[in-house]
Design a protein around this nucleic acid. Structure first.
Lengths: 353, 353
DNA sequence: TTGTACGCGTTATCAG
DNA sequence: CTGATAACGCGTACAA
């Protein structure tokens, strides 16, 4: 015998910080009168164990309240049965954004069907990004779903460079190797919205574009350009916003000043569209009679704007669920291609266009 | 002789092939021409190592892109340098609630100052709760901050029983052992708000209370009762809501029907207060002239209601930061007492009272 | 069906 | 300062 199975626990006088009793599989085996191997088999649900032994072990587990050590199991198995949802550089704005609730719920919903546990990682500044990458590379998780947003985010490249299986939500920018990702067809959605604006007779269609360092911002602008060029219209009436309400308001102001003749605007997000709606109203123009507006995202708030906002649906939750499914496939080795999965856009017409 | 340190030894059937991309400390040590122990010392920043060895090891680490295995380190060290923020049973409503953004930002901000990595765990149904508890008990994390909300959440009891170091945000209900927690003085805040309503001459002060299975709902109602009783007023004008806008609207409707003479109402959350504001206006009463209103939380939206809402500040972010600090103290063994930390309420008067 | 004996990758201990 | 070597707790070929 090299070592006592039951170390005497010191009864400290401090009851404030109860020491964490660590009961190991060894004690379970001893209590059940079997070997550690048999106990382990019971735990992992192996059929190669007698009913008698199984019962004894289960009884011991319950009585001792045994919980397998994650560290030891991860080390032995080489995996952690955990995947990360990474949200790079969120500020308070982005955290209260419906986008995140949808992403979280969509992914966790899909993962709940497997034995994978989801953990959420949020990285703040560049400092935090470093830590996230180390955390991921250290093998804490088997894979990651990354809500990719900003081009200058070194996290994308670093994760791809490591061999960690990962799936992006939103086409990642600034990466030079093929990557699994799921996205919606932002370009096509923007094009459809713009074509609708043109179709209802708008003569001068402007756009409020999203940030140039996000693929969604880029793609939606490009879709607007597609429609404008196809219709033989100039594509110069562009203002940029940062996806916030105030940004939308400001961009609308610029647009109305620079192009007083505009009678329609495609806005790259509902949040900005809400701000634009307010500004347009403030300037004494009516929506949709004087200016038609179509937003993007179909967030809940777009139903309660006045008037209710026409928009393009962004199936965030479904996208996250699909990303989770892809990641599970990658981990299972049953994901053949790296072709991105694109969700089709869906125009939701309410009363602003 | 169990096994050579360098896999390059031609002797022995080394069936243990290097797994994909996994470079171990052995290879680092070999490349640097030192032992594993020395390599480990360099990694952990021990001063007991020559400058020469240190340089060689660092060079090897960089060239091989070595990252220590989390599982192995956790096993050897007995800790993971990771803490969890647990959000039990969130639905989409609660996820887009500003409360969570504040909690996440506050905690991660404090943890960034330490070497602890924060992971967010969200549990959906009761099924998910089971998994969360197992995850916590398995030693994946060294401690947890739990945003405690619902009384019937078995998670509270189970985590406390497991002896995992943890700190609650919001007084946990339904637990029978002393627990570390941080909260604001909801009762006192509600009392102050109600006293203010009485002080400005309101004759009939009602309240819209929060859910009875949340400590904040209970405490805020009790604070309202305190003020009413102290003023010799009846405390029967009570309606309940579930902290949502629609719930507030509905509760206001009930209140106005049951107590047509009411001229003031203390609402247990800004979200509900916003709904109440709308309902009160719909019924042709003016705020604050006919009905004075004070909410609770001081969320961003309370500044943009019409008219701007008077409220009680809820320092969510600071509370979360404090909770993180307490947890770090507990983990360091420097947290002497289990006395809760209570933040003082702060009345924010705008124009509804 | 059960037990033995490693191996997982790292840190801690204790001689040199 | 450095290097063997024993833990850390669990899974699992390989025997029995």
């Amino acid at each position: 015998m090299t070592r006592a199975d039951t170390p005497a626990s010191p009864q400290g006088p401090t009851k404030v910080l109860p020491r964490r009793g660590k009961v190991t599989i060894r004690q379970v085996a001893a209590a059940a009168g079997v070997s550690r191997a048999t106990a382990s088999r019971v735990i992992s649900g192996s059929p190669l164990v007698s009913e008698q032994s199984r019962h004894a072990v289960e009884k011991a587990i319950a009585e001792l309240e045994f919980v397998p050590s994650a560290a030891a199991r991860n080390l032995a198995l080489g995996r952690s049965s955990t995947v990360a949802l990474v949200l790079p550089e969120p500020d308070s704005r982005v955290l209260s954004d419906p986008f995140f609730a949808g992403t979280i719920l969509g992914l966790s919903g899909r993962l709940d069907m497997s034995d994978m546990q989801m953990v959420l990682l949020i990285a703040r500044s560049g400092q935090g990004t470093q830590r996230i990458v180390r955390f991921l590379e250290a093998g804490h998780v088997d894979g990651a779903v990354i809500a990719s947003h900003h081009r200058d985010d070194s996290l994308n490249r670093r994760v791809l460079h490591s061999a960690l299986p990962c799936v992006f939500i939103g086409r990642p920018l600034g990466v030079d190797v093929p990557a699994h990702y799921v996205d919606m067809d932002n370009r096509q959605g923007a094009r459809q919205a713009t074509e609708h604006l043109i179709g209802i007779g708008s003569q001068r269609v402007a756009t409020i574009a999203g940030p140039s360092d996000m693929s969604s911002g880029l793609d939606r602008l490009e879709g607007w350009r597609d429609a404008m060029r196809a219709a033989g219209r100039p594509d110069d009436a562009v203002a940029y916003g940062n996806y916030t309400l105030e940004g939308g308001r400001q961009a609308a102001r610029e647009l109305l000043a620079a192009h007083p003749d505009l009678d329609a605007v495609f806005v790259a997000s509902d949040m900005m569209a809400t701000g634009a709606l307010a500004e347009i109203g403030n300037q004494g123009r009516r929506v949709p009679d004087d200016v038609a507006v179509i937003g993007f995202d179909n967030f809940e708030l777009s139903q309660s704007t006045v008037p209710p906002l026409s928009t393009v649906d962004h199936p965030v939750s479904q996208m996250a669920a699909k990303a989770g499914e892809m990641l599970l496939d990658v981990l299972a080795g049953t994901q053949p291609s790296v072709d991105p999965v694109l969700f089709a856009p869906r125009l939701v017409l309410r009363t602003t266009a």
